[in-house]
């Protein structure tokens, strides 16, 4: 808490000091590291090395400013033709520098930020993890791109999630869901981004928030919880019925299993502007299986 206060204080002080300098700088954005990044004008050449940030830029209607993306960014289609500059954990510094970006958008946890900054490239580090983060990141990137409708974009997303929740048949409300992230088995708990979406859909998660966002569960916990619906990516569904005791679970016997394609999984797990689409995918499956 204290660290956050200090960070804010620093940001406020920095802003005040800059304000005192007679507004020589047109634009300043504070990122998730607490660093105030200054720009003379809104960046026109952007490299994004996080898929959700790529999607955020495009959701704000500024896709054309992207000049490079990471190898995992695959939405919208237009970014697939852009030069790829590695991934979040192994960004290709040389390729990024060669693109002469005005700013590089990356996750706080990504590597290479110091290296890029030492070569005079501006880095804005943002880490979207939750629904609230999606809104905050939209705001920050909106400031950066100097577009005014970030709040409007958020309102549409929020309303769409609500609409998805309302589209559910009454029977689906309160259904108990197990969302498997991978066959560890790692689950998406209430505290995760996916868990938040499930809560908004008014279904119950068998993995309580106390276990953290993505706990590695004892498989027998799932068998005992006996969820009404299982949600899983097609990659991890293979062999699920061969796990000891799983075939007898209610969801498996009544075939109430939502199996998501790789593309759908991307939409579901990325904390970005497509979260409403993710909510719709889940709602559609819940309606099909429980309606």
């Amino acid at each position: 808490m204290e660290a956050i206060m200090k960070r804010w204080l620093r940001a406020v002080l920095a802003t005040a000091a800059l304000g005192g300098a007679a507004g020589a700088l047109a634009l300043q954005v504070v990122d998730d590291r607490g660093v105030a990044v200054q720009f003379e004008r809104s960046p026109q050449r952007i490299v994004s090395v996080l898929p959700s940030l790529t999607e955020t830029v495009c959701a704000l209607g500024q896709c054309q400013r992207l000049v490079g993306v990471d190898r995992y960014s695959n939405f919208p289609d237009s970014v697939r033709s852009l030069p790829q500059v590695g991934g979040g954990i192994d960004p290709n510094i040389e390729a990024i520098v060669a693109l002469k970006p005005d700013v590089v958008l990356m996750a706080t946890s990504a590597r290479g930020a110091e290296r890029l900054q030492s070569m005079g490239i501006k880095v804005l580090a943002l880490e979207p993890m939750s629904h609230a983060d999606v809104r905050r990141v939209l705001d920050r990137v909106g400031e950066l791109l100097q577009v005014n409708d970030a709040q409007q974009v958020w309102r549409v997303i929020d309303a769409s999630v609500r609409a998805a929740a309302q589209s559910l048949p009454p029977k689906a409300r309160g259904a108990r869901v197990y969302f498997e992230v991978n066959s560890g088995p790692y689950a998406a708990g209430e505290a995760s981004f996916i868990g938040e979406t499930l809560s908004r859909l008014q279904v119950r998660n068998i993995v309580p928030a106390a276990l953290g966002p993505f706990p590695k569960l004892n498989p027998e916990f799932v068998v005992r919880a006996n969820p009404d619906v299982i949600m899983v990516g097609d990659r991890n569904f293979t062999g699920m019925d061969a796990r000891p005791g799983w075939a007898g679970m209610r969801a498996m016997q009544t075939k109430r299993v939502c199996i998501f394609s790789a593309e759908q999984s991307d939409t579901l797990v990325r904390p970005g502007p497509r979260m409403a689409e993710g909510a719709r995918i889940m709602a559609r499956c819940l309606s099909d299986r429980l309606g």
Binding site: V181, N182, G184, P185, Y186, P219, R243, A262
Partner: peptide
């Protein structure tokens, strides 16, 4: 996509 599943394999598991 296979990274997490691989990690689970490399750390070993007797769960299944």
């Amino acid at each position: 996509d296979v990274m997490q599943a691989m990690q689970a394999f490399m750390l070993g598991s007797t769960g299944f």
